[in-house]
């Protein structure tokens, strides 16, 4: 599903390798937020490697053009720590943005799909409001709904449990677990800096980024 082969980026990655296959979940722990964000940018093709290879869905993407990368990104869902919502779009416009951009579904079908997902994840705020005043948790939920709507093959979570109460965290975790099982071969990647994540998420593999190398834990 996603593989790094001796990936190097000056001052950041030094021949780092990683492999996550379809249907698996993986936790990647970094020491700093900068490292986490840069790794996220590499996985989404926003930052190019100096050397090494990155395979996403079996394709080597490091030399892909913008258009080719966008085709790959369509199959990925990313839930950012701050929700990654666009501030001048209303919540429902944010949630619908990738679906209405990439698909040819009718408005009615898209609306139905969105409302069903919002019901499942328990989003009960006003979707006609701008996202600015929303609490971070709600923004993340909207970001999650946006990613789920695209039915991705690979979903990346960027510190999504950060600062949540145990009750809300467990609810979010349940939603994420159910979502991964809904599609055969769907992989989940959890990026975080907090080792405490290991207490409540059971992943198939755990990697730690240290001094430019990715170490797999037993």
């Amino acid at each position: 599903m996603i593989t790094l082969e001796c990936a190097s980026l000056k001052g950041f990655l030094d021949c780092a390798s990683l492999a996550v296959s379809g249907g698996r979940s993986c936790i990647i722990l970094t020491e700093t937020e900068f490292e986490k964000n840069l790794l996220l940018r590499i996985f989404t093709g926003l930052t190019r490697l100096d050397s090494g290879k990155i395979f996403i869905f079996g394709k080597e993407v490091s030399s892909f053009s913008c258009g080719e990368l966008n085709a790959v990104r369509k199959r990925m869902g990313i839930v950012l720590n701050n929700g990654g919502l666009i501030s001048n779009l209303k919540v429902w416009e944010n949630i619908m943005l990738p679906l209405s951009y990439h698909s040819s579904l009718s408005h009615h079908d898209m609306d139905e799909k969105m409302l069903s997902i919002l019901g499942k994840i328990g989003y009960d705020d006003d979707i006609a409001a701008l996202p600015g005043p929303l609490p971070v948790y709600k923004k993340r939920l909207a970001g999650l709904a946006r990613a789920m709507l695209m039915e991705p093959d690979l979903i990346i979570y960027d510190s999504v449990f950060d600062g949540l109460s145990p009750e809300i965290r467990n609810k979010a975790l349940e939603t994420i677990t159910v979502f991964q099982r809904q599609k055969e071969g769907r992989a989940s990647l959890f990026f975080d800096m907090d080792e405490g994540l290991l207490d409540y998420i059971r992943a198939d593999s755990i990697y730690t980024l240290k001094k430019g190398k990715l170490y797999e834990r037993n």
Binding site: R41, T44, L46, C66, G67, L69, N70, A71, V72, R73, K74, M76, I78, L80, N82, G84, L85, I86, S87, N88, L97, P98, Y101, H102, R146
Partner: peptide, 25 residues
């Protein structure tokens, strides 16, 4: 101002992550 603020807040990167080309959108 709008594009600048979107860039600073990482919204343009977020749009790219959705597979949307910012030059088109």
């Amino acid at each position: 101002a709008e594009l600048g603020s979107m860039n600073v807040q990482g919204e343009i990167a977020s749009i790219e992550m959705l597979g949307i080309d910012p030059e088109r959108y």
